[in-house]
Amino acid sequence: MTQIQLPSYREQSPEVRARFERLKTRPVILEVQDLCKDFDTRQGRVTALRDINLTVHRREFVCVIGPSGCGKSTLIRMLAGLETQSSGQVLLDGQPVSGPGPDRGMVFQGYTLFPWLTVKQNVMFGLQVSGRSGLPEPTALQWIDLVGLSKFSDAYPHQLSGGMKQRVAIARALANQPRILLMDEPFGALDAQTRGRMQAYLLDIWKNIDVTILFITHDLDEAIYLADRILVLKAHPGEVQELIEVPVPHPRNPKQFLSPEFLATKARLEELIHPPQAETAGLSEDHLNMVRMVAVDDVVPEVY
C-alpha cells in the first residue's frame, strides 16, 4: 500500500485563511484563563486539568477533543458552572462566571429532558423559570419548529427516538438564547446514521442563528466536520496539546470527509490522540500469549 501524500493540516486556502482572520476580529464571548481543576481522592491529590487557556469568538464553533480521562467533561462542566475550578477563571463577555446560569445553555450526552413534561413544556421550562419577558408558548413553538419537531410538540419524551430527544434538548437550551451553547458529547449515544443527520442539523442551526458553540466529542470525524477550531487535550494531567484551525472550507458537507484537508487534519489528530508506539508494543505482547492459549482446529488452521 502506498502512502497518499497529504498536505499539512496547517496549509489553509486563501478563503479559509481570510475567514479565520475575520473570525479573530469578532468580539470575544468566552475567555478561559489558566483554569485548573484538582480532585481530592483517597490516593491523594489528582490534577484533572492544568492551565487551560482558550478564547472563543462570537459565532465560532469550537470542538474539544482528547483521549478518555483528559478531563474534557470536567472542562465543560466548569464552564457551565456545575463544577468549581481550583484556580483560574472563566469570563463570559468579560464577566467572571460562578454557578450555572441560563446564559450558558448545555446539552448533555444522556437524555436530560424532563420526562413529566411534553416537548413544548420542556422547551418552555427555561423561559418560565428565568422569568423572561414575552410569551413562552409561541417562542417555544418557534424553537421546536426550528429543530423540525412541530408535529411532536405535545408528545412526551419517552415517545421520541434518541435523535429527536437531543433535538428537543438543543431547542430547550437555545430557547433561553444563551451567549454560548455547551455540548457535552451530545451525539455520543446515537447510532452512526442518526449522528450524521444530527451533525448536519446542528451546522444548519449554527448557520442560521446567532449562537456560539463549544462542543465536546471523542469522534475525530465529528470534530473536524463541525469545528472552526479544535482544542486537543492530553490526559494525566489534562493539558492543552494543540489548538488546531480546521482548514476544511465552509459550508461543510459530508463529501469533504475524503478531501485532502480533512484527511490531513485527521492524520494530525490521530497522531496527537493515539501516539503511535505506546499502544502497539503492549498489544503484540498480549497477542502472542493469546495464540498460545487457544487450540487451533485442523479444519481451519489459518484465518488468512
Binding site: 457551565a80 450555572p100 441560563p102 450558558r104 436530560t112 420526562p115 421550562f125 427555561g126
Partner: peptide, 30 residues
C-alpha cells in the same frame, strides 16, 4: 432522582425554589 435532571434545570436558569417545585417534586411524584 437523576442528578443530571437537576443539572439540566440549573443550566436553564432554575434556582432554589423552582428546582424543588419544578424538578424535584414532579421528578419523583410517580
Amino acid at each position: 432522582l437523576d442528578p443530571s435532571l437537576l443539572e439540566a434545570a440549573m443550566t436553564l436558569g432554575a434556582k432554589r425554589t423552582s428546582l424543588l417545585f419544578r424538578v424535584v417534586i414532579p421528578g419523583i411524584i410517580v
